[in-house]
Amino acid sequence: MHVIIGVLALQGAVSEHIKMVTDCGATPRPVKTKADLQDLDGLIIPGGESTTIRKLLVREQLLEPLKALVQQGFPVFGTCAGLVLLAQSESLAGLNGTVVRNGFGRQRESFETELTVKGWSKPYHGIFIRAPYLSEVQQPAKALVTLADGRIVAAQQNHVLVTSFHPELTDDTRFHQYFIDQIVRPLKTQAS
């Protein structure tokens, strides 16, 4: 089944996500305006500066339509800044949890590490850049990756998927594939 995945293209690592979506066999579409939201099957909110992306969403009058979509159960995958926007109640309110911005410190503390993902046999290489984390999540949100110290760095709430790290900076398409095959496609099948 053919699926179209929007990539919010106001600021940040847009081309990296577009490549990932293509590599997963779906059609990417950059989203800059309300009109670009038409006929999408899912949306990715990339890493970038969350304060900048939020301001541009407000200026483009995209914040409220996006929030409404998220509330209706539209599939959205957010990485880093995308996690911040999805978890903030004043932004998209798509995930019940408490987000700590720049939670690991400044750029010098940015890091790479191997992650254990619930239900996956092989580890995932996580690249964390001035990354946020979730200090807790509440039902129906579930943690997918929790660091040894308890910080939650990947989570899912129904059709919303978030990671603190940047799958788009790796060659490992598993998170994008999971989003497209396990969240976007079943919903589209159900609807048709």
Binding site: L10, A13, Q107, S110, I129, L169
Partner: peptide
């Protein structure tokens, strides 16, 4: 194995600034 100051995090930081001022 956690590593800081790698090429990926240093270049990646600039990638996150794309499209910005």
């Amino acid at each position: 194995m956690t590593q800081t100051g790698t090429t990926a995090v240093k270049r990646g930081m600039a990638q996150m600034q794309k499209g910005g001022v």
